[in-house]
Design a protein around this nucleic acid. Sequence first.
DNA 1: GCTAACTTGTGAAGAAATTCACAAGCCGCG
DNA 2: CGCGGCTTGTGAATTTCTTCACAAGTTAGC
Lengths: 213, 213
Amino acid sequence: MKRIADSTIRRLSLYLRFLEDFEARGLSTISSDELAARGGTTSAQVRKDLSFFGSFGKRGLGYSVPELSSRLRKILGLERDWRVIIIGAGKIGAALAQYNGFSERGFLITAIYDNDPGKIGRQVDGLTIRALERLSSDPESAAADIAVIAVPASAAQTTADLVVDAGIHAIMSFAPRRLRVPDDVAVKMVNMAMELEGLSFALTNRDSDRESD
Amino acid sequence: MKRIADSTIRRLSLYLRFLEDFEARGLSTISSDELAARGGTTSAQVRKDLSFFGSFGKRGLGYSVPELSSRLRKILGLERDWRVIIIGAGKIGAALAQYNGFSERGFLITAIYDNDPGKIGRQVDGLTIRALERLSSDPESAAADIAVIAVPASAAQTTADLVVDAGIHAIMSFAPRRLRVPDDVAVKMVNMAMELEGLSFALTNRDSDRESD
DNA sequence: GCTAACTTGTGAAGAAATTCACAAGCCGCG
DNA sequence: CGCGGCTTGTGAATTTCTTCACAAGTTAGC
């Protein structure tokens, strides 16, 4: 299969949410134009995104809501549950463990790890914090699909190495660092402070634009 | 000024973190190549990113760490603090209010709002939850620079409208929705479930690649 | 002061993503 | 059954982003 752009996948994920809304409201068909309006893009973009995976619509009519939504779920691999472990039981890790929005979407948090002896053994939302050094020998991590890395930036790379050694092939990292991993391991970096800095730039730029007008 | 790509800004934000590391370690110069290696990009990309804003380096030598880092802070608008309000005191909103990583980077959380009468008046990390309908009349929101929207997706657009009416020009939204706002309002969408779906896609795709090998 | 070893800054080339534009197909109606 | 009104799917055109490649500038050593 031709390599699919990240931006395409992100949009598919978004379209799926709109379809779920439509499904809940009992609507049966939707056009690329309607999806585009909700997603802030163009109908051509929607059709192009879908075209990488097949042709799911009917000319003149649009897309069947339940069919397209089931197709997207299949494309995105959401027909099954995924087991997620969290590494780092600090503020971010603990907040994620308590957030139930993930399990609602099929991402089940099965374990949480830390390397601080003071934290090991404590409970976070029903999960016992485990010792990080046990990661590779733990049955929970052996069965895990995705690791969330929520450790200090300075420990991110060694943590990633542990995760890779444990046979996990997908990482969501909160550390603002490029993680070096083998090609067959997918990494997504998430960092809200960086997003805020993007807004800071936009605000600053807006002000200077006005001054120079 | 020529429009700068989002991806460029995100990288500048990342470079800045590396520079801060270097600064802390007392190093005085850095080359585009070293920045690139840490950021997972190329030296040409680093130089191009910087070139939109001026030329900060010395040929043959590289960049002065303190100077470049100060320049980037200025470009990103991080020489001042920003006042951030959070709207929605649910799991996400409350977690953000308690997280101190933002204030460390100059994003001060000054107020939190909700429209659930049962929540109004309660404390979250030293902040009293305020009534959402008071948003536009509140001095806190009038002085706010950035609004974080952490309400259910179905309420996101009306919340965004309130925020815009309150004169706020930057929004970070956790709702997987395109928000309709005037051109001079910057919006960043953050959604971890969508990132996880990206990983789900990568894992699914990896598996099917292997099957077909 | 000259040479060698580096590294920047930047047009030009190349790659990737988005938008255009239109043929082809579908539905409903008379 | 044929026509008019829609909407998809997709090559081609366009725009945007990244990489290449090299002249120009800097330092260090001798």
